[in-house]
Design a binder for these strands. Structure first.
Lengths: 213, 213
DNA sequence: TGTACATCAGTGAACGCGCGTTCACTGATGTAC
DNA sequence: TGTACATCAGTGAACGCGCGTTCACTGATGTAC
């Protein structure tokens, strides 16, 4: 019965699952999510299409798993950077590096939503982990900023954050998120392509803005 | 020969083309671009699938046309708001309203890029029109900001903008774009959904930041 | 005003394709006695 | 250590489906003389 859960069969399963996912990522990077085909993946892995159903219930479950992994990867990356001493600007650069490493993984999370699709609850929980790190990072900053109208509003809608954190700090974390995302998604989608400047430098300036918001 | 180009046949063609596009938009709003099907559109319009080929060479041309229309709509909206006296914050609200009116149209332009797809040149030209309006709007603002490292860098890559505009102004227009896009795309994709605050108020604060950047 | 004709707008059948998924079945693997 | 057996991992054939697209053909529309 292999009570420990790490019998050779289970190890094998985990390995094949990982291999399937890796080929799925390659296919997504090449042609985007809509073009992700179970049969094509199976061929690459070296088995028949139906065999995939031993590892994933169906196409949707595979995609959901990829989304989960993407969130997990981002949360872990950000968390370990922060634990390693990264401050707010360093965290921003960490997020950017993570996104540049695999743009389609970034877009799988933050790109065009599919109407009607709702991410499973645990992925939003992982997403919150990211926000938690940002909040911790901003909590370490001096709180010398004048309160804004949104700070006041936010104070009434903050059930998702620890009570001891000032609204201005939460606001800082949110702004980190929107500004970083703003530059990144335009850059990754190629909207700066014709302009010739270096997106990294625009990004750097925008990161500076977070400190003197 | 109907030299004017407005014979009744041409009027009819234009009408049907418009009707096809409208149904295409409805389908996109319902299920996203990947699910857009020529046959399904034809059925809605009330004709057979092959008949669409009288109006569009193929599926790609239809989508390209939708993209073109989306850019056109945004450019016209922003331009007429500005000509009507809108300042920078008002322009930001105009863009937000435009995006909220049809999120999938917004994402068709600014959402997840399809790997390998390159928008035709004229759409990037229309996109530039938007930037031009933003530059004009920022040029009307007092230029009392200290120069940033990116301003210096940008001064060397500004062939896409009129020579008489200071780099700081171009930087302002770019920042408008990234910050507005940052809040908007996260909002429209539902990433603030669980948090309970009003995205409009976060947006308002972010727009304020553009004036005291 | 009437007629001839080119063009336009549409139909329906058919094409090949790749998709996700099911099913019956086979052989290998690991476990229990 | 050997054997019996349940489970697991895989195959190949087949399903129905909807897709984009082509083709031959028909009738309507507008134009030229």
């Amino acid at each position: 019965m292999a009570a420990g859960g790490t019998g050779s069969r289970e190890r094998y399963r985990a390995q094949v699952r990982a291999e399937i996912k890796q080929h799925a990522w390659e296919q997504i990077a090449t042609a985007g999510v809509p073009a992700l085909s179970l049969n094509a993946i199976a061929k690459r892995v070296g088995m028949s299409g139906p065999a995939l159903y031993w590892y994933f219930a169906n196409r949707d479950e595979l995609i959901t798993e990829l989304i989960r992994d993407a969130y997990r990867s981002l949360a872990d990356t950000v968390r370990s950077a922060f634990d390693g001493g990264a401050d707010v600007p360093a965290l921003a650069r960490t997020v950017r590096d993570w996104a540049l490493h695999d743009p389609q993984r970034y877009f799988l999370i933050y790109g065009t939503p599919v109407p009607g699709y709702h991410a499973p609850e645990d992925t939003t929980a992982i997403s919150n982990e990211v926000m938690t790190v940002l909040i911790e990072a901003f909590a370490a900053l001096p709180a010398d900023r004048p309160s804004t109208p949104f700070d006041t509003h936010l104070d009434k809608h903050r059930h998702w954050a620890p009570a001891e954190i000032p609204a201005a700090t939460l606001h800082g974390a949110l702004t980190f998120w929107t500004r970083v995302h703003g530059v990144l998604s335009l850059e990754l989608a190629g909207h700066f392509a014709g302009m010739g400047f270096d997106p990294a430098q625009l990004f750097a300036d925008e990161v500076d803005s977070l400190l003197s918001r």
